[in-house]
Design a protein around this nucleic acid. Structure first.
Lengths: 206, 206
DNA sequence: GTCTATAGACCGATAGAC
DNA sequence: GTCTATCGGTCTATAGAC
């Protein structure tokens, strides 16, 4: 691993804990066994380190969505996704979302980026938009289109797909927030998410 | 208004925008037309200013809950609240929650405290717990007990009250998050919250 | 590409005059 | 209770030796 990558890794760790303003160049350099002067051979400024972390997180975020099989085709969910969603049992659906949640919560990189964006979300309009897009809009749009098709197929009761998507996803997001702030409540949050999904299926299935 | 109160007001404004580490004593003093030295006649340290803001927000938060008629009696919602909930129409329930949302989003003090806590939520375990309690647990518990009684009265279909509470409240919280980050989407968020409540009523009413 | 050293600004906090 | 002045320290960033 190159020094530059090590710097980005350490900076992300500290930015996610103390924020941009609360982290100094010396503090980033120290655990790497170098002095802050050396950082400037790799980056022009502290801001540039932050910007590169953000830029890299954008591409890695898309990779992760790929791996978790959340694909988009021209803004529409894959036909495959609908098939998966409609054919699986309540337990299977529960497990599928829980897989996404468990990954998001256990993967150290995802956790750090999420924390960093959370405490930086009001810093610039760009970061505000990025936060909303990544943790809200993308998921909502995906679920909305999925519910649209499920309603069309008669697999779930009719209703407003957008409202259904919010009702399905927002509680997951809320419990992930508790989980992030209070890791000692992880088990409770995981159980609550599971209960939520079960209840949701019960209320929407035909 | 005393100088001390003016300091707390200005500090809250800046902490909510730039965070604790990103705000300096000089910057707090400047808009008040005094120097940072004068701040130390009213507060021992920057940390103490932050702590007093947090402490005051705790009591003002409880006052606000009172004013919005969200009362608790030994952990149980007032009988009055159940009566109100059960007697009002979908439009009335929608309006009741929207009143809470509109106040939370338009009241400058509430907005600033919410932003400050959002970007400070990982700073200490105490702040983590406070954030969860204030913006999640309190509301969830209130709604849960309300749904318990509504199910008992046969006013809404049976289901897990806790899951119902999450399904009802979490989308509101999620849209308030978008609203905070991107005020230009205020109208969209307000409409989405309204739609959500309508859809929720449709799905749960007997 | 690392170091030491330092510039120059700003930080939190204090002393003492008024 | 405000000011000016200042302390001791840290900050970002740079210069120059190796």
């Amino acid at each position: 691993m190159s020094t530059k990558e090590l710097i980005l890794e350490e900076a992300l760790k500290q930015f996610s804990e103390k924020g941009f303003a609360g982290t100094s160049m010396s503090e980033i350099a120290k655990p790497l066994g170098i002095t802050k002067a050396a950082l400037y051979k790799h980056f022009e400024s502290k801001q540039q380190i932050f910007d590169e972390i953000i830029a890299e997180s954008e591409s890695r975020y898309k990779e992760i969505l790929e791996k978790l099989s959340i694909h988009f085709q021209g803004g529409q969910p894959d036909k495959q996704d609908v098939a998966v969603y409609s054919s699986i049992s309540i337990e299977g659906l529960c497990e599928s979302v829980l897989t996404f949640v468990r990954f998001s919560m256990s993967d150290e990189y995802s956790r750090q980026v999420r924390r960093m964006l959370t405490i930086s979300q009001f810093q610039t309009a760009e970061l505000s938009g990025m936060f909303t897009k990544r943790y809200v809009d993308t998921m909502l749009e995906y679920d909305e289109r999925l519910f649209e098709q499920l309603i069309g197929s008669g697999i779930i009761r009719s209703g407003d797909p957008k409202a259904l998507a919010a009702m399905f996803y927002a509680p997951v997001l809320m419990y992930m927030g508790i989980w992030d702030r209070q890791p000692d409540r992880a088990a409770e949050c995981e159980a609550a998410i599971k209960k939520h999904i079960e209840q949701f299926c019960k209320m929407t299935k035909t």
